[in-house]
Design a binder for these strands. Structure first.
Lengths: 211, 211, 211, 211
DNA sequence: AATGAATGAGACTTCATTCAT
DNA sequence: TATGAATGAAGTCTCATTCAT
């Protein structure tokens, strides 16, 4: 039997969908996906459980909807950066670009919920694939900036360096979000990360010239 | 009511404990802790559910036992490295030491289960604390090597650099374990990571001399 | 985790609550509280186990609800008697009053279930306290009637006599309910009990006059 | 399959049996029969669960053995009283006899365990029948004393009075054991109970003479 | 469309009892 | 005889999901 799930088109419906999603997001963030019940979400959202199930086929569908929002938000932010202009700007002002990138990434993260997403990536393939896609995009961007900046042939070595640079960015973002550093420490970490990345990039250029 | 849990002293008991733990580990890795039932573990381990509960007070106790094993294994590996000799060796052969450290860390990881552990860290405080402790230890070791090597005063800057170095090591280890790179790529990544770290360290030394 | 338990407001719900309670009462009476399972109650009551648990947080809650009914029924009966009028009437027609009291007490008892209540008083403090409260009330009433009737100062002796009178009433009620006497024997026992009580009361008056 | 249960003949065995029974009695008294596990009894008694089951066919068998002890103890005490001599003595010194009877009954009671026995009488027929037998014996004794004392024909009325007297004795014994009266109050209650009984007996004699 | 009472599979856990050693 | 590890039926309770109103 095919399950009919209402696609909300009217305003009231959309409001309800949003209310459910926001509530679910808050609860998942606070209590962990596995410890939140659909009845709880419905109650907290002020709708009946029946209504909840008329908008979402099952519990995982709520998560997937949230995941899609999360993804959309990332894409919006990412597309803002992933432009030819950015590549060009990187050439002249790489430090500023790196800082911009890090700040953009920081912007998308909503600590508690991101936590849940990361956790569920270990369990729910669809979540994993979304996160992998994000990482892939940022990795590619990093790589392209890198290539564009130093203007050399692609190579396994550059790919490896690019991976390392991505990891530095990524771990710095995580460190800033999840660790309880002071703001001063966070700023210092950000600055030093950029220093290190520049060091790596410049070193790569020098090495490539030597060849 | 106080719960009696058999403490295994005899060989057969220890075997059973191990069987249960191994089975649980495999199932947790494959299906996620929250989706594995105690009955399933018992069945798969070839013991009755009663036996399982005579060795472990509840499901979480099984996880905690696995976590303790995981922790013990880490500590063993870590203590092997965390010595004065290592610090000294680092001074003369930092690259070799870094490689050693990475190899040791790689040794401890058991892909699928480590995944679960990381996931559960988001949910179960005890798991989180064990992982944080591991990271803390490695971070401290990195920092000490660093200080010892460049032989300068502690500073917020060095602390930040040390964090970045730790993150490079850590993310490289993860990348090697979890990503499906070819062996060649893995080796390259490892080598390049070490290069980058050396670059950061040496740059720090030069900067400190300039002051 | 806070447990949601449906508070029945609608007719159907109240019916279900009643159905569950009646079934539970019957089963507890027949088979003993400890030998009755919640699944059994649900099945017998014609509801699902989930429904049962949506009305009662756990097995003990069912018992408590029955206990409350039992208590309420007692209170209703008791308050009917525990009046100034009754005290006055006792002065002029003590025998009739005693008979009234015994009949009222007999009315509240529902042989099999009372049995369970008494049994559980040995085990569950809440049950014990309800029964003790009932006894206390009847004891006090007896005492007040007594004092009012013979119109003397309170004393340890009168208190003891009052306890004995209460015990006669109480044991007679039990004897009538639980023993398989013929109706004729029951009536005789009731009459004789009243005789004895009057004997005790009148004797107390005479003694008090002698002093 | 017929179950072989060892009948202990050797000293060590008897010791073990006793140890098990004493432990069980203590645990049943403290925690309620239904909340005590056989494993717990075995452990506390310092024997293996296998040994326990080699002496007792099942959990109820332990209870039955305790019940038999309890019964035997009662019978011993009761037979001590239930003699022609006692009947004769009653004629001359009824008050002393009544006090003796009450004291004997008090002697047999072991508050906590008696509690359990009474509770289980509601559930386990065998227990019920033992208690009923005790009551029956005491009732008969009371009746015979009564008849012997007042030296009249049996009659339904006397039977009823006898029941009331038995109930006074019985409830007084319970009151003394289970209620937290002071010792002084207990003595007073005992004395007053005897007074009341004598009052009832003497009144019966007078009434019989009038006929 | 919305409601929320109802469902019941299945999770976790206990404990009387057995049986190989 | 004694042991105690092992058993598994059975109990309590949860929660995603349905469906009559």
């Amino acid at each position: 039997m095919v399950k009919e799930v209402r696609t909300p088109t009217q305003k009231r419906s959309i409001d309800k969908t949003k209310k459910i999603l926001n509530t679910a997001k808050a609860l998942f963030s606070k209590k962990n996906y596995f410890n939140v019940t659909t009845n709880e979400i419905a109650k907290e959202a002020g709708v009946s459980i029946g209504t909840l199930y008329s908008y979402f086929s099952d519990k995982e569908a709520i998560l997937v909807a949230l995941l899609n929002d999360y993804n959309a938000s990332f894409i919006t932010i990412f597309d803002d950066i992933n432009t030819q202009d950015f590549l060009e700007l990187f050439k002249s002002e790489p430090r500023r670009c790196l800082e911009l990138l890090i700040n953009k990434l920081l912007k998308n993260e909503n600590e508690e919920f991101h936590n849940q997403i990361e956790m569920l990536a270990f369990t729910i393939p669809q979540v994993k694939s979304v996160l992998e896609n994000h990482n892939h995009k940022v990795k590619e961007l990093t790589y392209h900036c890198f290539l564009h900046y130093i203007d050399v042939e692609e190579s396994a070595e550059l790919k490896a360096l690019s991976t390392i640079i991505f990891n530095i960015i990524s771990s710095t973002v995580d460190e800033i979000i999840y660790s309880n550093h002071s703001n001063k420490e966070k700023e210092l970490l950000k600055a030093k990360s950029i220093d290190c990345i520049m060091l790596i990039i410049n070193n790569a250029i020098e090495l490539s010239k030597l060849k």
